[in-house]
Each structure stands twice: as structure tokens, then as C-alpha cells.
Design a protein around this nucleic acid. Structure first.
Lengths: 205, 205
DNA sequence: ACAAAATGAATGAATATTCATTTTTTTTAT
DNA sequence: ATAAAAAAAATGAATATTCATTCATTTTGT
């Protein structure tokens, strides 16, 4: 019995709206897993439906079409990511403290939510997401940009663009996390600490 | 008249084997452009053929099938990238000198060959390339790994894994180049110099 | 005239989407 | 409490389209 048929058993014991929620989640999860394996256009709705344990028609009850499904799964993954990263974001902490906090939260998410991480990396490097939806996804990062803005005002962080700050501090982390997820490179606690120090050193004033 | 029909005129004036070479190149170029716009499974052979100025059947004279086409275009792009990056690679130079040289050659390539850069980024973050072909692509990076190995032996570069060295020095550059290509963030000569300094600082001993 | 290269219409398999029907849940009436 | 009726949710076979690939024919180069 796989993760998906397990859901099916649960369904028997609950009312419709709860069922719907679970079904939708199963579709989302199946989308992430299959798109990670075969790419978006490489995964037919029929396979998606089979893996999610629903019929193809059911998918069209929750989503307008295949593209809408992808867009919504993308936004949901982005929302899940950023809400984890900024969960205990607090503007009362010092910039340095708060940056460290956010950086490690991002690391933690990427370490624990591997399918979402791989999926987002694919979407962010691919033309499959509608441009307006991609823009919408970027908005979710605003707490980090605010933090950097504060850091620059307080002369704690170098006065360089957000893109540079992101390039120096987040992209190395993202790369290492994807390599870790692909079992190409093991990341230890110590390595992660070092990577953080390196990231902070490269943007602090 | 577009870039592609310009090729067609040239063809009239040359022999078959030269023509073949140009046709193959047109197919490769069309593949990169269309995959960049629509993704691999989103680009039908028919459109590919039309853009390249050949008939669908012709593509099958040069490639076994669509997947083989993608794999070969990928390897060709990787080869073009690394042969540019390591064009004047010379083990007689100092490690520091040579790393700076390679780093800026990589930057130059990414800056000048934007379609290839976008294409490679998509392939490297996607399951569309056959795994053995991806592995083959990695081999092309060996001069850089050799350089790092020398640097570690000579106590010039920190004794950390190649993945970490790559994460610290190359991924920020790649990100900035893609953002530059998407017109999201302008990269000046000065910014690039600073980024290099930051990269070298993070791995030098 | 011959050979090599290229063509593009034809084929058959695959796939997104629809919708008439069935199943499940909720509501109503007794 | 129970059963019939209504509503909501889900189904999956059918449809129409799209697409990779082939191959008999044509074009081009020598």
C-alpha cells in the first residue's frame, strides 16, 4: 500500500468537505512528485489522476486545466516555503540575528521538504509557469527584502542590490540543498554553519 | 527576413556536406530557442523544423529521435561552454591567477551566449536530460576540479569539497547572469569585479 | 545518370478535456 | 429513527486534437 492508497482509506471515515481537502492535497502531491520525475509536459493527467487516486475528471473539478493546476501547485509550494522561512520573523530582533534566523529556516525547509524544493527549483528555471504567477511568487519574499533594507539603513549590510545579496547568501545554499537532495553531496550541521558564516561575511559591512 | 531564412540563402551557394553542417546547426539553434520559450515537451518537432527551415523528416536524418536531439544539443552546449571557459587554461599559471581567469571566462560566456546559458540552466534543473548524459556533461568541468585540487594541495584554497567551492564561487555568478539575461538586474563591469573578489575571498585560505 | 539529401503527407499512438452517468452525502418528510 | 428525495461529488469512456515518427517520392549535387 502506497502513501496514496493510504489516503483513500482515511476518506471512508469522514465527511465530504474534509474529503475534498484531502483529495486536492493528493492531487497537489502527485503533481509535485510526477513533475519532479518527468517534467510538466511529460506527465499526462491520466497518470496524475492514477497516482492521486482520483479519476481524471476529478482534477477538473478543482482546477481549470493542466496549466492552472501547475500554477496553483507552484504558488502553494512557494507559500509553504516562505511561510516556513518567515514563521518567527520578528522586526524587533537585530538585523544580524534575524538574518541568521531566516537563513537557517530556509535551510531547514529545503532539507526537510525535498520534493517541494526540487519542484520549485524546476519551476524557477523553466518557462512552464505563467509569468504573472511567477511575479506573484516573488512577492512572498518581501520580508527578506525588508530585512535587507533595514540592514542597509543601519549600515550593517553592504549597500548593494537585493539581487547581489540574494546571489551571495541564498543561491549557494539552494545549490547545496539540491545536491544534498540528489544524494550527490552530504550536508552536515557543521558544513551548514560554515556556509552560513561565509554567507554573512560576504554581505556584512 | 529572420535569422533563419538568412541561413537558407547561404545554403544555395555551397556543397552538400557544408549545407548539412549548417542545417544541423540551425536545428540545434532552433531547439535551444524553442525549448527556452516553451520547454522541451512543449515544443513539437513540427515547430522546431519550421523554425530551423527544414522539414520534420530532416531532423530524423541527424538525430535518432526527439530525446536524442535534446541530449545532443545539451552536450554540445556544455561542450561549447566549457571549451570557452577553459580555452586558455594553463597549469603553469598560479592557482589564484588561473582561477580568476577561468571565473571571468565563465562570466564572459554566460554574458555573451545567453540562449545557451538559459538552456543549460533549464536542463540542469529538470529531469528532461537522460542521467548518463548529464554525467557525461559533468566530466567537461574537470579542469576546474583539477585546479581546485592543486589549490588545496598548495594550501591556497580551503580544504573543502568541490561542491562547496562550486556553491560559493560559481552559483552566485550563474544566478546573476540569468537575472541579467532576463533583464531583471543589470551587471556592470565593476559589479562583476566585486562579485569575483567576494567569490575568491570565500574560498581562499 | 547516379547517389545523397531532403521532403512532407500519412500513420498511429497519446493526451487534454468533456459530459452523461453513477455514487456518495445531505436534507427533508414522516 | 428511517427512508425517500435532492444535491453534490466523482467517475471514466468518448472526443477531438496533437504530435513523434516513417517512408515513398522529389530535389539537389556530383
Amino acid at each position: 500500500m502506497n502513501e496514496y492508497s493510504f489516503f483513500l482509506l482515511l476518506l471512508r471515515s469522514m465527511g465530504l468537505s474534509e474529503k475534498s481537502k484531502l483529495k486536492k492535497e493528493a492531487i497537489v502531491k502527485a503533481t509535485i512528485d510526477l513533475v519532479n520525475c518527468n517534467g510538466f509536459h511529460g506527465t499526462p493527467i491520466s497518470k496524475l489522476a492514477k497516482l492521486a487516486g482520483v479519476s481524471p475528471g476529478t482534477i477538473y473539478l478543482y482546477f481549470d486545466n493542466k496549466q492552472d493546476l501547475l500554477n496553483k501547485v507552484y504558488l502553494e509550494a512557494k507559500r509553504k516555503f516562505t511561510s516556513y522561512a518567515f514563521a518567527n520573523y520578528n522586526t524587533k530582533n537585530s538585523v544580524e540575528e534575524e538574518f541568521k534566523n531566516v537563513w537557517f529556516r530556509i535551510a531547514e525547509f529545503k532539507l526537510n521538504e525535498i520534493p517541494e524544493t526540487i519542484f520549485l527549483a524546476q519551476c524557477d528555471n523553466t518557462p512552464i509557469i505563467d509569468e504573472e504567477v511567477r511575479q506573484e511568487g516573488i512577492i512572498h519574499l518581501s520580508p527578506l527584502l525588508d530585512l535587507w533594507s533595514r540592514g542597509k539603513e543601519q549600515n550593517i549590510i553592504k549597500p548593494i542590490s537585493d539581487y547581489l545579496l540574494y546571489a551571495y547568501t541564498i543561491t549557494p545554499l539552494s545549490f547545496l540543498m539540491v545536491m544534498h537532495a540528489r544524494n550527490a553531496h552530504l550536508l552536515t550541521k557543521e558544513l551548514l554553519e560554515n556556509t552560513y558564516e561565509s554567507a554573512w561575511d560576504s554581505i556584512k559591512k
